[in-house]
Design a protein around this nucleic acid. Structure first.
Length: 449
RNA sequence: GUAGCUGUAGCUCAGUUGGUUAGAGCACUGGUUUGUGGUUCCAGGGGUCGGGGGUUCAAAUCCCCUCAGUUACCCCA
């Protein structure tokens, strides 16, 4: 049987795990400094919880879990004969794998509201699953690193997230641009341009591609999406305004209340950050839209400078995420780091620091069975002293044991034979320099402590 | 869902206009050395050339179907 893994999934070697944990570690540390606490939710949710939250496209990308037992027993023959998968799925699958961490979080908040105090700040680093077509930087199983604060409309939290983003990428040594926009401002622009509400989503999908396909491309895309050419052209004119002040004036002139609110929100975030300099650039970007339909206010996105790569973080404010689960008036704002893409960037630019691969310190090699017995005692003493150590499990040829130490990138080897057992002085070899020392056990322990 | 590219040893890949017994490097095993690896030398095992069908005296190579991987679009982290 040929070993395989499902499409879009990956194995991780110890070296890769070390690097991933480094990224997760930095993100966690910063989240905790800003007062976020970790939660975890189950891998699977009830399908009811997930369906309808990500649009039709999202529903198709949900992994469903087949019910246990005789799952076809109660399905009517007529339904089976129809071959309508959509209708049959709820009958044979009541659970699905989580698609993101935000919807499970909303459910969590509603279910645990008595145990939480608001504003509630949580972070969550767990894998999610999407039955998407994999491609570069996109997988069917991947980790999200979310932080959200729920139960407050304060724009101070938006400012905090900007600081968090800045701090994380500063620590990871990646130069980024933090793009920020506001859904209300987009609504205002749509209003001024005369784009009807039912075309708003089409509009945002189109203008989100501005960087990629240019002005003409966006215009074509909007017309393809049946937005009136006149309105589309007016919108393109508005998109050319890049300063917040000019947009504020425009919204004021046109009497767009919602647009004005959007501008004011952005300006308030800027005020919070005025006296706290950032390392990275914070960029107001009118063409930033993001697909997710539940955002209602601020929208964030981060791109790495000097690297061809999609966004490495997304986020925003949503006013009514928990409403669907029966808890009204819970405004929240959150972000999600794209750990996989961050990993790829750091790998490509060799940004992982030395020494994050926490390997064992020393390997004991022996010449014969007597030495192996003796060596096992030494090994135990080292481990009791808290030193990460290993022994080659048999007195194989020196060459083989050394090769093994080398392949595992173990920095030191202790050699044990007749001489060492007689004198009690152990040979410690530095595998990098080739230098050797003779030490008693207690001195050996000191070297590694 | 649509389109392009790729499937040859455990891994990375060569294999010419179809032509004898399909190769290399790494990895693995054994020997050489015999108290020292990364950096001696020698030998060895391991392949239904993704699968099926077709053309041909002859197919890894050409054609068709199929499966898988991958990249791009849609959408998204």
């Amino acid at each position: 049987m040929k070993p395989r893994i499902p499409q879009g999934t990956r194995d991780f070697t110890p070296q890769q795990i070390a690097k991933r944990n480094y990224i997760f570690g930095v993100i966690k540390e910063v989240y905790e400094i800003y007062g976020f606490r970790p939660i975890e939710t189950p891998t699977m949710e009830l399908l009811d919880t997930l369906t309808g939250k990500y649009g039709d496209e999202g529903d198709k990308l949900l992994f469903k879990i087949l019910n246990n037992g005789d799952f076809l027993k109660d399905v009517k023959d007529s339904l089976l004969a129809e071959k309508n998968s959509r209708a049959i799925i709820p009958k044979i699958a009541k659970r699905g794998l989580r698609y993101d961490l935000t919807v499970p979080f909303a459910r969590f908040v509603v279910m645990n509201q008595n145990a939480l105090s608001f504003p509630f700040k949580r972070y969550q680093i767990q894998p999610v699953w999407r039955a998407d077509r994999p491609q570069k930087g996109r997988y069917r199983e991947f980790y999200q690193c979310d932080a959200d604060v729920i139960g407050s409309k304060a724009l101070l939290y938006e400012a905090e997230f900007v600081q968090i983003i800045d701090e994380v990428f500063k620590r990871l040594n990646i130069d980024v641009t933090i793009h920020i926009n506001n859904r209300k401002l987009l609504a205002g622009i749509a209003e001024v341009a005369g784009i009807p509400d039912d075309k708003f989503v089409d509009m945002t999908v189109a203008i989100d591609k501005l960087d990629k396909i240019g002005h003409q491309g966006v215009l074509d895309e909007m017309i393809r999406r049946e937005i009136a050419p006149g309105a589309a052209e007016k919108l393109m004119e508005l998109l050319k305004i890049t300063s917040i002040e000019a947009l504020a004036a425009k919204m004021d002139d046109s009497g767009s209340e919602i647009g004005l609110t959007g501008v004011e929100e952005i300006q308030e975030i800027w005020r919070f950050l005025e006296h706290s300099p950032l390392k990275n650039t914070l960029n107001f970007n009118i063409s930033l839209a993001r697909g997710l339909s539940y955002y209602t206010g601020t929208i964030f996105e981060v791109t790495a400078n000097d690297v061809e790569m999609g966004s490495i973080l997304g986020g925003g404010r949503y006013d009514d995420l928990t409403g669907i689960f029966g808890l009204k008036n819970m405004s929240g704002v959150g972000i999600s780091f794209g750990a996989e893409r961050i990993y790829d960037i750091m790998e490509a630019k060799s940004l992982f620091p030395e020494g994050i691969n926490n390997n064992i310190k020393v390997l004991i090699v022996t010449f014969d069975h007597a030495a192996l017995d003796y060596g096992f005692g030494i090994l135990t003493a080292l481990r009791k002293a808290g030193i990460s150590a290993d022994i080659y499990p048999e007195p194989a040829k020196m060459k083989k044991q050394m090769k093994y130490a080398n392949a595992r990138e173990i920095p030191f080897v202790v050699v044990i034979g007749d001489n060492e057992m007689e004198t009690g002085k152990l040979v410690l070899k530095n595998m990098e320099t080739g230098e050797q020392d003779q030490l008693f056990l207690e001195d050996l322990i000191k070297v590694f402590s």
